[in-house]
C-alpha cells in the first residue's frame, strides 16, 4: 500500500481515538453548561482523578500484566467503581462550591471553578506526585492489522477505548432522549422554574447531571491510562480545554454537538500532527475555537437565534 495513504489511515484511527475520550469529557462539560450555564473549568480534573484513582485501585490487588483470565473482569468492575467515585466527587464539588453561588452573578461560580481546578490539581500532585506517572500496561498492544500493514495500528487497546466510549455516548444520548429523568434534565435545562412547577426537584437534577458528567470524565481518565500508559496531575487542564473547545465547536449545551466537536478536534489534531507538525496542533485547535466564537458562537449544531441547551 502507498505509505502516504497508510500514514493517513493511521492518523484517522488516532483522530478517532482522541475524539473518543475527548467526547466523554466534552459531554460532561456541555451537560453542566446546559443546565446551570456554568463553564466548569474543574471538569477536566475529574478526568485526571479517574486516571489516578483507578491506578490506586489496581494497586490494591496483585494484578498480572497484561491482564489474563478472570482478571479481565476486573476492568468493568473497576470502571464502575471509578464512575461512582468521580461522579460522587463532582456532586460534592457542586454542593460545596457551586450551589451556594447559584443566585450570584455568573462570574462568581466561573472563578470558583477555576480555583477548584487549581485546588484539585494541587491535591493530585500532593497525593500521587508531580511527575509523569506510568500506568501498568494491562492491555497488550499486538496489532491486529500486522498482516495488512505495519503502519496502521489497531490493537486490543483500541477495542477497549472504542468499546467503552462509544456505548457510553450512545447510552447517554438514549438516556437523555428517551427516559423520564433524561427528559426532566432537558426540561430543567430549558426552564428551571417551569421544571420546578412540574414537581421536578431541580437541585436533584443538577446533582445527577454533575454525577453523570463526573463519572464519564472519570472513566475517560481510566481508559486514557490503559490506552497511553502514562499521565500527570496537570493533564486534565489541557484535556479540559480541548473538551471545552469541542463543546463550543458543536454548540455548547448540545449533547450531539459535543460528540461531533470532540471528533473534529481529534481529527484536526491527528492530521496536523502528520501534515503540519505536532507542535502546531494546539495553535490550530485554539485558532478554531477563536474563529468559531467570532463567526458562529452558537456552534455547529447550536441554533443561531438562541443558545441550544441539553
Amino acid at each position: 500500500m502507498d505509505p502516504q495513504l497508510e500514514a493517513f489511515l493511521r492518523q484517522v484511527l488516532v483522530g478517532l481515538s482522541i475524539g473518543c475520550y475527548l467526547a466523554l469529557i466534552a459531554l460532561g462539560y456541555t451537560m453542566v453548561y446546559g443546565i446551570v450555564e456554568l463553564i466548569n473549568f474543574a471538569h477536566g480534573d475529574l478526568f485526571t482523578f479517574g486516571f489516578f484513582i483507578s491506578l490506586t485501585i489496581w494497586g490494591l490487588f496483585d494484578v498480572p500484566t497484561p491482564l489474563e483470565g478472570a482478571w479481565i473482569l476486573a476492568l468493568p468492575a473497576i470502571a464502575i467503581v471509578v464512575i461512582l467515585l468521580s461522579g460522587g466527587l463532582n456532586v460534592v464539588i457542586e454542593r460545596v462550591a457551586y450551589r451556594p453561588l447559584r443566585g450570584a452573578s455568573k462570574l462568581a461560580p466561573l472563578i470558583t471553578a477555576v480555583g477548584m481546578s487549581f485546588m484539585l490539581e494541587a491535591i493530585f500532585a500532593y497525593i500521587w506526585g508531580a511527575n509523569q506517572i506510568n500506568y501498568p500496561r494491562f492491555i497488550p498492544t499486538t496489532n491486529f492489522l500486522n498482516d495488512f500493514s505495519r503502519i496502521i495500528r489497531f490493537t486490543p487497546r483500541d477495542i477497549l477505548l472504542f468499546g467503552v466510549t462509544i456505548p457510553a455516548m450512545i447510552g447517554l444520548t438514549l438516556f437523555i432522549d428517551r427516559t423520564r429523568l433524561g427528559k426532566a434534565m432537558r426540561a430543567a435545562a430549558q426552564d428551571r422554574e417551569a421544571a420546578a412547577m412540574m414537581g421536578i426537584n431541580v437541585n436533584r437534577i443538577i446533582a445527577i447531571t454533575f454525577f453523570i458528567g463526573g463519572g464519564l470524565a472519570g472513566v475517560a481518565g481510566m481508559v486514557y491510562g490503559l490506552y497511553t500508559g502514562s499521565g500527570r496531575f496537570i493533564m486534565g487542564f489541557e484535556f479540559g480545554l480541548f473538551a471545552f473547545t469541542a463543546a463550543v465547536l458543536g454548540g455548547i449545551g448540545n449533547i450531539r454537538g459535543a460528540v461531533l466537536g470532540a471528533f473534529i478536534i481529534g481529527m484536526v489534531q491527528a492530521m496536523s500532527d502528520l501534515y503540519i507538525g505536532g507542535e502546531w496542533s494546539r495553535v490550530i485547535i485554539f485558532s478554531l475555537l477563536i474563529l468559531m466564537l467570532v463567526f458562529r458562537p452558537s456552534g455547529i449544531l447550536g441554533s443561531t437565534t438562541s443558545v441550544e441547551k441539553v
Binding site: R180, K183, A184, R186, A187, Q190, D191, E193, A194, A195, M197, M198, G199, I200, E308, K309
Partner: peptide
C-alpha cells in the same frame, strides 16, 4: 406559558405528570 420549547408536545405533557 413557559412550555419547554425543545421538548415535543407529548413530552411536555408527560413532564406535567412527572410525579
Amino acid at each position: 406559558r413557559r412550555i419547554f420549547p425543545r421538548l415535543s408536545v407529548i413530552d411536555n405533557l408527560q413532564m406535567g405528570a412527572f410525579l
